[in-house]
């Protein structure tokens, strides 16, 4: 379902262009394969929320079985699927979600709102107060649910390349990294 609504990138050049030409928006790259059940669930979440976040984020799916994409799979060290990598102005964004890997989000989101929270958290890193209105509605709707959003927003003006995840730990998928050749 999600792969129908969202663009699927199968060539390296397409991924390059997406990273280079997405300006002042968060680029969400989902690495995975459409045959995977977890990927399907995540794609569904992404497809449903892509319109809501379209003002400040672009979502694209990357087919990691494509031959040309293997460079990126190696480069981003993607071993578990689905994996989501965030970019902003061609800069990789890290997220500290309490898991061993800060470079990507591994696994699915339990709900659409969780994903929006995470992306918005990333996006708010880059904005000044003037842009508050753009995301005000989202923030307002979530204030009752998640009071930490405003705390993230307050700390967001520093333009840091790593953000902390606004989701509670129980809603973050757990995994363990085994380091090889280190």
């Amino acid at each position: 379902m999600g792969s129908v609504v969202l663009p699927t990138l199968r060539r390296k050049r397409e991924v390059d262009t997406a990273i280079r030409d997405t300006l002042d928006k968060v680029l969400v790259l989902r690495f995975g394969r459409a045959s995977d059940a977890a990927c399907l669930q995540l794609d569904d979440v992404l497809a449903k929320s892509s319109w809501d976040i379209s003002k400040f984020a672009t979502v694209a799916l990357v087919d990691m079985d494509s031959e040309e994409i293997q460079v990126y799979v190696d480069y981003f060290d993607i071993t578990l699927v689905p994996a989501i990598i965030f970019f902003f102005n061609a800069h990789h964004m890290k997220m500290d979600s309490g898991t061993p890997d800060h470079t990507k989000w591994i696994g699915s989101f339990s709900s659409k709102q969780d994903f929006i929270d995470v992306v918005e958290c990333l996006y708010l890193r880059f904005l000044v107060c003037n842009c508050l209105c753009a995301t005000k509605n989202l923030v307002d709707s979530r204030q009752q649910k998640n009071s930490s959003v405003m705390a993230v927003f307050r700390g967001a003006m520093k333009g840091k390349l790593i953000v902390s995840c606004p989701l509670p730990p129980e809603r973050i998928p757990r995994f363990q990294l085994l380091f090889k050749d280190v």
Binding site: D21, D24, N89, H91, R125, L127, C131, L161
Partner: peptide, 23 residues
């Protein structure tokens, strides 16, 4: 207009400006 709204210290601001001009 757009760059005025956005934080000049945001991540990749220089890249965005350059790339936008190029585009």
């Amino acid at each position: 207009g757009k760059s005025r709204k956005l934080n000049p210290k945001r991540v990749g601001a220089a890249w965005a400006e350059r790339r936008r001009a190029e585009m």
